[in-house]
Amino acid sequence: MTMALPERAKALLLSLVLLATFLGIWEMATPGSKSGGQLSEYEMLSGGGAQQARVPPPSQIFEKAVDELSKPFYDNGPNDKGIGIQLAYSLYRVLTGYFLAALIAIPVGFLIGMSPLFYKALDPFIQVLRPISPLAWMPLALFVIQDSQASAIFVIFICSIWPMLINTAFGVANVRKDWINVAKTHELGALRTAFQVILPAAAPTILTGMRISIGIAWLVIVAAEMLVGGTGIGYYVWNEWNNLDLTAVIFSILMIGVVGMMLDAAFAFVQRSVQFQE
């Protein structure tokens, strides 16, 4: 019977089995905690009366998820906002910093890809700046920009610029000579050559860089928001940790994964649309 199923269905089935097994073991390994009503206020504060705080079972996390996702955009003041609002703040910062980076990285990448002189001149700067952890910029950003929100955006900007810059330069520099010759023999000007030949030829490589960048930006925003505080999914995780609400922590970790996956899928879609076969 299973032999007749296509590969994809089999893989899906296996995924579900693995998930069920994992969740089952987790659920069984976690003894059910007493309901809140039976605990004194002191017991609740000290971790639900147990000897030590425990990781909540999947069922509790599921309940939490249903609860949170049913009202994602509520706002009860600074420390109690819906998960949708927190994610929207993070996405806003990521996308702002990311597109500012693209605005710089792609033209500069074009320039150094086309001109060996600029490549050689800018290479040492890139090599030194690229390995710096984006969070290391945070103190300097806070001091110079004097605004924590803008500093978070700056950190996203600085971390997403490098893969885009390097991939654009690489893609542009490696456009097949034949295609450049086609542009030349058709008397295309520099601008039209750039847009009609080099850009489409380098687009798959550029998009690969953009996809790597958005992945890194989403990784970094969580850490940046833990430092900056106030709003965003990173702040939310840290805040729930301070509240000792591990259910919320695990739920938000899952949400970070889901949103990251969706961002990547969106870029994968764009990437496929510019892909060509030689």
Binding site: D178, N181, V182, T185, H186, E187, P200, A203, F276, E278
Partner: peptide, 27 residues
């Protein structure tokens, strides 16, 4: 180079992201 001299290269040198028609309209 000039449009007065058309070139057909050995490896065709078509732009792979354009259809056959678009490759010709390009010229």
């Amino acid at each position: 180079p000039s449009l007065d001299r058309g070139v057909v290269f050995q490896n065709y040198s078509l732009l792979p992201w354009l259809s056959a028609l678009k490759n010709v309209t390009f010229g």
